[in-house]
Nucleic acid binder design. Structure first.
Lengths: 345, 345
DNA sequence: GGTGAGAATTGTAACGATTCACTGAACAAC
DNA sequence: GTTGTTCAGTGAATCGTTACAATTCTCACC
């Protein structure tokens, strides 16, 4: 190693000192150039800018973080990056964080509590300014808060308000209500709600909304089938069950707790000669891409995933910028009905 | 500011000094405890461990990065986090990076060159030790290397070898060859390859593989239909075209460049009374979850996404740990044929 | 009990930024 | 001319680690 700059083995970055020297100013002035440019005269500003440019200077984030005591990175842990809902949330967080000048450390817990906690520890080590967490369903949140070591946390898609943190959730009940009301207004009276397992808060809340809509209307009945999961395959099995029933015994409208379920079910029914939506109308949930693209496009409830991410990042940015005056709050978003052929008139 | 600990406004982390004091050792010993534990006597090691524990001490990553000159974070930029192939890659990278003790900064360029470059700049600022990049198809790579500022880069899913970096790719040609050979061995002779646009390297390479297989067999013909995208919807349109043809004029086997295409096409054909696989056998590509779950489960070519991620992270770790002796290389993985009903005997 | 070798531990100097009390210069007011 | 005020720019101290040279401890051996 006979290089003149043996500091770091591979790349040689320039430091503020180099920039200062080149621009003929001091150390601190370069720092001011980046952090409080209004303190510099126009002339100095230009000199520094030129030097920064010529050296392709990039401030060292570690040094800055150390000196400031805190960086401007935020962390996000999402339960399942394979689920397009969370991918949308991630996209939202990403863009809002970028807008607020925050860097994003994105992690995926893959529905594994240990991994979720590992990531929270990692964020602690990195001294992130805050954390956005889409936790496992049904989990206690105390641990998450402890692990984040007093840093601000925003919960996404965690049911229930919370005194010590902000949150963003969707009104799942309202989604169920929208779906059921839509079908009832179409004149359907024999409703079936399919989804499960019911201990998932989303599945249960959607059902509650459906029940509310049903209760508001005379002469509408509701049947409930709990499934053990929400896959297309399970949907197809559900389709078989319905096809096997006597026509009079079938519902005239089915509310599925997920699009995948609806798609599978519809597929089997149409192949068995049951007409959708004529004989049975369908609604799904989530507005996944294949809901729009399947053979019979599925009416669905769209979750505002991207918006949730944007809002979560916004709440976090607000808390981070203004810890003293910040007041915790939970934002509840309304899902939207998207009508397609599976429930056309 | 009358707090005893006015350092950071919110959380109060302990420093190595605090741990040292509590354990009755020096500063540097605590550092050794973390970085070169074999230098400590068993007794000291225990004392320090206890103190670390009691104070819930977490080393400050920024300070460490600054002192070491480089951190142990690597960055990954993926073109499209909405695509399950890249999600698999991300998962692989994630787990292998964790294994190697590297932290992962995950970013999603969303098929946008500007965003990709922004993230590379961000990584530069953070002084990541290396970068894993799944770049936009057809892009020049020079820029990426410049932006990463001399740091090691591993390219994933970028066609073509490269002298200055490692890479991981799948043998797309082989995938096409597998699919076509499989169908030919089943006795099919009138093949159709559908996919597009052909300037995507994956689509073109797969076709080349198909052509090779066809050339190896007497009496097998190949028709090619270029589509403008690979969605289910386009698949359905393709299905219409085939259904409209006279039966004698149809292929007896279709190789689709993507599962989505196959699923849409099969869906329309079966509803139009064409039997799959009896009249026409199908293969898809990618092994997406809905290929397995659709009404007629689709034979497909599985891409080893997770493995690609693992290998990419491994190559990067190797280069990072051993920049002097490291030799760049490109690993080519073979995709695998997954036989399902759409091409059953 | 003195010596030397090796092991264990310590203390100090970086690392590259931020911060803030301070100096100088320019200029206005008396 | 002196004093005051404002604006620009300076530079030393600091953040919490790591690295390494220097020091102290331990113990076997003569």
């Amino acid at each position: 190693m006979s290089e003149s700059r043996a500091r770091s083995p591979q790349q040689s970055d320039s430091r503020m000192g180099d920039v200062a020297e080149r621009a003929g100013v001091s150390h601190g002035t370069v720092s001011n150039f980046f952090n409080r440019p209004h303190l510099l005269s126009a002339a100095t500003r230009e000199k520094v800018a030129a030097a920064v440019d010529e050296l392709a200077f990039v401030p060292n984030d570690a040094a800055r973080t150390l000196a400031k005591g805190t960086g401007n990175t935020v962390g996000a842990v999402l339960v399942d990056i394979g689920n397009s809902f969370f991918v949308d949330i991630a996209r939202g967080i990403e863009s809002a964080a970028a807008e607020a000048g925050l860097k994003l450390l994105l992690a995926n817990s893959d529905v594994d509590l240990r991994r979720q906690n590992d990531y929270l520890d990692l964020f602690d080590e990195t001294r992130v300014r805050g954390v956005i967490l889409a936790p496992l369903d049904g989990e206690q949140l105390g641990a998450a808060r402890v692990r984040s070591h007093g840093r601000p946390v925003v919960f996404v898609n965690w049911p229930g308000e919370d005194e010590q943190s902000c949150g963003v959730i969707v009104d799942e009940q309202h989604g169920g209500y929208l779906a059921a009301s839509h079908l009832i207004n179409l004149g359907r009276t024999k409703l079936l709600y399919a989804g499960g397992p019911l201990h998932l808060h989303a599945v249960a809340d959607r059902l509650a909304g459906v029940e509310r809509a049903v209760a508001e209307h005379e002469g509408v009945t509701l049947e409930i089938i709990e499934t053990h999961s929400l896959t297309t395959k399970v949907g197809r099995i559900l389709g078989e069950q319905l096809a096997d029933r006597h026509a009079d015994d079938r519902p005239d409208a089915v509310i599925c707790a997920a699009d995948s379920l609806a798609v599978g079910c519809i597929e089997h029914l149409t192949s068995a000669g049951v007409r959708v939506p004529d004989d049975i109308a369908f609604t799904g949930y989530d507005n996944n891409h294949y809901a729009a693209e399947s053979a019979v496009p599925v009416t669905t409830i769209a979750q505002p995933g991207r918006e949730m991410g944007v809002i979560a990042a916004g709440l976090l940015a607000e808390e981070v910028d203004n810890p003293a005056t910040h007041e915790h709050r939970t934002v509840v978003l309304k899902p939207q009905l998207v009508v397609r052929r599976s429930s056309a008139q």
